[in-house]
């Protein structure tokens, strides 16, 4: 952008130096991209090569086989339905987990309640999702409530941790001032606490989502008759590895897209007005 201005404002020698620096930077970037592409090529061809040569082709289908299977599955028309089922489950479960997580995090402002929920959060963070999946599967069987409860139990703690982290860094002086000026509890929360917590909540949402979709698929494997997890289980029980890999990879790519692209875009948009505080 400064190329047009540089020759007139600065002496030619410095301009050429800046030019050189920019050139070096560009060369670096091109080199990095080259290596990156080389990495993709290397791993994909390693995968392709080892299927059929290092390992049996039925045990490790290569990327081309997976791609072909995806085409077949798409033609059969099972893909959108399974995706929609799983995404709906994630949506509802995650919404519940979000509400619970934020509520618990807010309640933890109180000292007694923070002691009360402390162990709940520790258990929520450390317990593998598998355990919740099994417990809810055995208690609820095939009912919809099972997966939802499992999602809530695994995800809420991450959101709570982030919210309470935000609460620890609350602007105490602002709240004290509001208190001494007689601002009510609701108004105080609405105008001081929530705006301060928003970035922390967003971080919690991103982390929470990355857990929630994994747990959802896991519970579907045990106790569901529709969705990605169910399709994966069917494929593994029939020993169809290409199909199994296709299901998991397709959903994985979708989830990554939602996590890294959509959520981050929303976050950037949401916090466009504040320049410094970005969680």
């Amino acid at each position: 952008m400064s190329t047009a201005v540089a020759p007139t404002t600065s002496p030619p020698r410095r301009a050429s130096q800046a030019e050189l620096a920019r050139k070096a930077q560009r060369r670096d970037r091109i080199k990095a991209w080259g290596w990156r592409l080389a990495g993709y090529l290397f791993f994909l061809s390693l995968w392709e090569f080892s299927s059929g040569r290092l390992m049996d082709e039925t045990l490790l289908p290569g990327p081309t086989a997976v791609f072909a299977t995806f085409g077949e599955l798409w033609q059969s028309g099972k893909v959108p339905g399974a995706f929609a089922t799983t995404l709906t489950r994630i949506g509802i479960g995650f919404l519940l987990a979000f509400v619970v997580g934020v509520l618990v995090g807010m309640l933890m402002q109180n000292r007694w309640l923070s002691g009360f929920f402390k162990d709940a959060v520790t258990i929520g963070v450390t317990t593998p999702g598998l355990i919740w999946a099994l417990i809810t599967a055995i208690i609820f069987g095939n009912r919809e409530a099972g997966p939802l409860l499992a999602i809530v139990l695994t995800t809420f703690a991450v959101i709570t941790v982030n919210v309470s982290e935000g609460i620890k860094s609350l602007p105490k002086d602002l709240i004290d001032m509001a208190k001494s000026f007689g601002v009510g509890v609701l108004k105080r929360n609405r105008h001081i606490v929530i705006p301060h917590l928003a970035p922390f909540i967003f971080t919690g949402v991103r982390f929470g989502f990355s857990i929630a979709w994994k747990v959802t698929v896991l519970t579907e494997v045990f106790s569901s008759s529709s969705g990605i997890g169910f399709e994966m289980r069917t494929a593994t029980q029939l020993f169809r590895l290409p199909e199994f890999l296709t299901w998991i990879l397709a959903f994985y790519i979708l989830a990554l897209f939602l996590e890294k692209v959509v959520l981050e875009a929303i976050e950037r948009r949401f916090f466009g007005w504040r320049t410094t505080l970005k969680a």
């Binding site: 080199k31 990095a32 991209w33 080259g34 290596w35 990156r36 080389a38 990495g39 993709y40 290397f42 791993f43 598998l130 990355s210 979709w213 994994k214 698929v217 896991l218 494997v221 997890g229 994966m232 998991i248 994985y252 989830a255 990554l256 996590e259």
Partner: peptide, 19 residues
């Protein structure tokens, strides 16, 4: 260069579910 070579794959493996 090595970083660029491996980075995306490390992130991909990291985000893969245990299941």
């Amino acid at each position: 260069s090595v970083n660029a070579f491996f980075n995306d794959w490390i992130v991909a493996i990291l985000a893969m579910p245990n299941l």
